[in-house]
């Protein structure tokens, strides 16, 4: 009886964690929904000509690429391929950092052309800022993951930590996929 309960418990623990994480994403989605609605409510489809479109595209590509490496890290971890797992986590962290550098460059230009006190600047800095904060927390989590992985914490049968952080990283990417067109591309 007790053993059966334990096995059942271990199985439903994973399911429970997944459900909780997805609900967290749902909640977070409303944060981005509120920001996106604010953008259209206040500024309509306006976008300043000084917006660095090429840089926007480049950092979008980098973030999507980092999603791929994160995906590969998770698959590797699921198959107990620790070497590939660590390598891909490192890739992901680096790509995340490059993304942040891109944001910093953008912000420097932004301060010049549309400072945060202006209508578009308000939205631009808030939306990219909130998103960059998520990227930053994601990078911290990935770093912890890397060191935990190096100390042999995860096995092919037990890698919820990897799965959770990687899902979070994908979610940050999803948020960007929605923010990027609303901020840069609508006209």
């Amino acid at each position: 009886m007790a053993l059966a309960k334990e096995i059942h418990g271990a199985y439903s623990r994973l399911h429970t964690n997944r459900l909780g994480l997805w609900l967290f994403f749902l909640s977070e989605l409303f944060i981005f929904a509120a920001l996106i609605s604010s953008r259209f409510y206040l500024q309509g489809f306006y976008r300043p000509a000084e917006l660095n479109q090429l840089l926007g595209l480049v950092i979008s590509v980098i973030l999507v690429l980092s999603s791929l490496t994160a995906y590969r890290a998770e698959i590797a971890s699921a198959h107990g391929d620790q070497r590939r797992f660590r390598l891909n986590i490192l890739f992901t962290i680096s790509l995340g950092l490059i993304f942040l550098i891109g944001v910093v460059i953008e912000w420097r230009e932004g301060f010049h052309f549309f400072p945060p006190s202006t209508g578009f600047g308000t939205l631009f800095f808030t939306m990219t800022g909130v998103h960059a904060f998520h990227v930053l927390t994601g990078i911290i989590a990935l770093t912890i993951l890397y060191f935990l992985g190096r100390s042999g914490r995860f096995t092919s049968g037990s890698y919820w930590g990897v799965e959770g952080v990687v899902k979070y990283w994908h979610f940050v990417d999803v948020a960007w996929v929605l923010i990027y067109p609303t901020l840069y591309l609508v006209s």
């Binding site: 595209l57 067109p181 840069y184 591309l185 006209s187």
Partner: peptide
């Protein structure tokens, strides 16, 4: 992403 970019930068309105 690239299609989005082309549409967004290419179209002046209605993108």
């Amino acid at each position: 992403e690239i299609l989005e970019y082309i549409v967004g930068v290419g179209l002046k309105r209605g993108a």
